[in-house]
Computed example of a mutant assay.
Amino acid sequence: MRSVYITRVSKFLPNEPIGNDEMEGVLGMVGDKPSKARAIVLRNNGIKRRFYALKNGKRTHSNAELASIAIKQLFDEKLPISKLQVLTAGTTSPEQILPSHAAAIHGQLGINQRLELISASGACCSSMQGLKYAFMAIRSGEADVAVSVGSERFSSWLTADRFQPEVENLMQLEANPYIAFEKDFLRWMLSDGAGAALLQPTPNEEGISLKLEWIETTSFANELETCMYAGSVKNEDGSITGWNDMDVPEWTKNSVFALKQDTRLLGENIVPKGGVYLAELMEKHGLTVDMVDYYLPHMSSEFFKKQIFEHHERIGMNIPYEKWFYNLPQVGNVGSASPFLMLEELFHSGRLKKGDRLLVMAPESARFSYAYLYLTVV
């Protein structure tokens, strides 16, 4: 088994950053009324700006384009993209059911060679699941150059026109003409962008590389019901009914394809279950707080920061805040791209020195999956 190194990391964030006061002007007001949830959500999540692949109500980039731009930045004359062999891609927001997201990116890259592709389905953990496949491909000797990318184009799901049929239906029923909090909540949480990592069996000759010591993922779907979902509705018994089992008019009348989240279930489980898994990994890998120089937690909201810190304390992983590194306030919650965006910023910050050890945490609330990545700077 060979060693595996992240030798380059890149990002692409589309257009100009959007501040909190500009969001509703870009996304629009549902039912021509300001959101009741917006101020509360923004006050708690700590996000100051985000990026949208959207201008004047029109798309500027597809999800595959965002990913392909980030990927191309990993290559140059010294290492041309013609050397790429394996591409893994994760996203929450693919633009089609078929072909796969990785295939869409491959086509968008405009390269001459065929590739081995893996599309990881899911939410924030999908890019980490793809990264594990790339890690195993390099480690086993099946490939010498692999790229893992996480990308999102949430903005197309968040614009007011997507919810207008539901609001009009509510008005006809003389009901409260506001979309439910479970849908409105996520309109103020999510951002567009892409992050990518290049994996090779040897480190850079100049500068730093990140040696992948281990990457672990798990799912608690056997214990917990669905929390974040799209293309379905959640029933009173906790089960979900998918779009293909609904009448077509219901798709728009109830904003079935909107991204929704059960915030009660999220608050009760997202931090504790992540701690349960981390405690298991501490035992498995002999991991202690002294073995972490930088902690990169992907958080959907700064609301969870104190909870994560306190829960880590209870399991003996009391990582002080000065070791935390995240960029949620500056780039927003970019789902599957967020772990790579944190790594990219730290990798190019000039702060890392050889021997530093990084622990990356990526939770996914869809049905509670978690990924932890441990790296050493070499």
Rank of each mutant, 00 (worst) to 15 (best):
V271D: 08
L212I: 13
A123V: 11
V233L: 07
K183L: 10
E142H: 06
A143F: 14
T218S: 10
A337E: 13
G207E: 09
Q330A: 15
P94H: 09
A337Q: 11
S151C: 15
S127W: 03
D32A: 11
D237G: 10
S3P: 02
D76R: 10
P203R: 09
I105K: 00
R2D: 06
E213N: 15
N112M: 02
Q73C: 07
N333Y: 06
E313Q: 15
K354R: 03
D245N: 12
P14F: 01
G332F: 01
F154L: 08
G355Y: 12
S300E: 00
M282R: 01
P94F: 04
A221Q: 13
C125M: 02
Q172N: 08
D184T: 03
S119C: 07
A194N: 03
S300I: 00
I105C: 02
K273V: 15
K260M: 08
Q164D: 07
S219M: 07
F75C: 08
N222F: 07
K253S: 09
Y295T: 01
L66N: 09
G316T: 01
G335V: 12
E250T: 10
V334K: 01
V248Q: 14
E313N: 14
H106M: 10
I240M: 08
I118C: 04
M317G: 11
L117A: 05
L84N: 06
F325V: 12
F347P: 00
S35L: 14
M128N: 09
A104H: 00
S68L: 14
G267P: 04
S93I: 05
M29R: 15
G275Q: 05
G350T: 00
I179F: 12
V145G: 11
L186R: 10
V41M: 10
R38Q: 09
K306T: 11
M291R: 14
L210V: 08
F220I: 12
A89W: 09
K234A: 12
M228V: 15
S93P: 05
Y321G: 01
L27F: 13
V167A: 06
S35V: 10
E166Y: 08
D293A: 07
L224P: 03
I40L: 14
S127T: 06
S338N: 08
Y370I: 01
F347C: 00
A258L: 09
A104L: 09
A70Y: 10
S301G: 02
V331S: 03
G207M: 14
A160V: 02
L341K: 01
Q330E: 10
N269P: 05
G316H: 00
V377T: 13
T226R: 04
F325P: 06
K284Q: 03
R50W: 06
